[in-house]
């Protein structure tokens, strides 16, 4: 008895972690099928990309890749074209995200009202979501076409929207807003439906008007949803590629060359893979920094 009673006492402390280890191993084994694709297709290339950023990898059969340390990052900081592209990227991402949010909020509020054909209107608002970016790009290129475009014939103007130095970027931003509205609208609409009715009833008793109800109930209640969707939108927008590639290919004269387009050109047009990877890493850092500050401020205000 003493033996049997003794044993667990002595062995218990080392046994516990061992048991946990076995459990962990089993869990790992079960997770493996899911982990392998993640490791092979996501983490692996990601690490490879980060590694490339520190090399002078470039295209060519006789190209020799060597480790260059931080010199790519140095080049990047002194590259005027990168900064121009970065500036365009920020203008694009911020204005698309903000305007998209405002437009979607309006649309979501409208679709949340009791009205006729509400279901139909909701489906209609989702349509852009069903279209791939390339198709959206082609469609809008037709809309903006200087001779055959519906926009010029409606306005009676003769503007070459996508080739004018000062109009191209705003024109592309409009398409960006249109493209991203469904996602934002759906999320905001879901958020609106989650706001407890009792709150509205309570303030209605106090005699609050529409504006006060929106400002004091709807907005604070929606806050977490708004923070989530705007930060997601920002990341999506700054990484936008397909849409602008189809619309303008970065033209005219680089006026719509978003950072990702710039990286693409560096890699697949000019063949500087290492430099392009550096650009990618730099954008990740920027996105993390912007999001970090934004989320930190939001959370601090919320608490």
């Amino acid at each position: 008895m003493t033996l049997t009673a003794d044993r667990p006492v002595r062995t218990a402390p080392p046994k516990k972690p061992r048991k946990g280890g076995r459990q962990g191993r089993e869990a790992l084994l079960l997770m493996l099928p899911a982990l392998v694709p993640v490791l092979v297709f996501s983490v692996g290339p990601l690490l490879y990309g980060i590694f490339l950023a520190f090399t002078d990898a470039r295209s060519g059969r006789n190209a020799v890749t060597s480790f260059v340390g931080l010199s790519n990052f140095g080049d990047l900081l002194s590259d005027g074209d990168f900064w121009a592209s970065f500036r365009i990227g920020m203008i694009w991402a911020v204005s698309v995200t903000v305007l998209q949010f405002l437009a979607s909020l309006g649309l979501a509020l409208l679709l949340n009202q009791e009205m006729r054909f509400r279901g139909f209107a909701r489906v209609l608002a989702m349509v852009p979501w069903a279209m791939p970016p390339v198709v959206i790009g082609l469609m809008w290129r037709l809309v903006y076409h200087p001779d055959a475009g519906i926009l010029n014939s409606m306005l009676g103007t003769e503007i070459d929207w996508l080739n004018d130095f000062s109009i191209a970027l705003p024109a592309v931003i409009v398409v960006g807003i249109w493209t991203g509205m469904p996602q934002t609208t759906v999320v905001l609409l879901a958020g609106l439906q989650g706001v407890p009715k009792e709150l509205y009833e309570a303030v209605e008793v106090d005699g609050a008007g529409v504006w006060r109800r929106f400002w004091n109930i709807t907005l604070p209640q929606l806050r977490p949803v708004i923070v989530a969707i705007t930060s997601l939108d920002f990341v999506w927008n700054i990484n936008q590629f397909g849409l602008v590639y189809v619309l303008t290919q970065g033209g005219p004269g680089g006026q719509t060359r978003l950072p990702m387009l710039f990286a693409y050109e560096e890699a697949f047009r000019y063949g500087f893979f290492g430099y392009a990877a550096t650009l990618g890493v730099a954008i990740v850092i920027v996105v993390l920094a912007v999001l970090g500050v934004y989320l930190w401020r939001q959370m601090r205000e919320a608490s």
Partner: peptide, 11 residues
């Protein structure tokens, strides 16, 4: 997109 570029490079 960066992931995609890198992925493409990996492939």
């Amino acid at each position: 997109m960066r992931k995609r570029v890198v992925l493409a490079a990996g492939l």
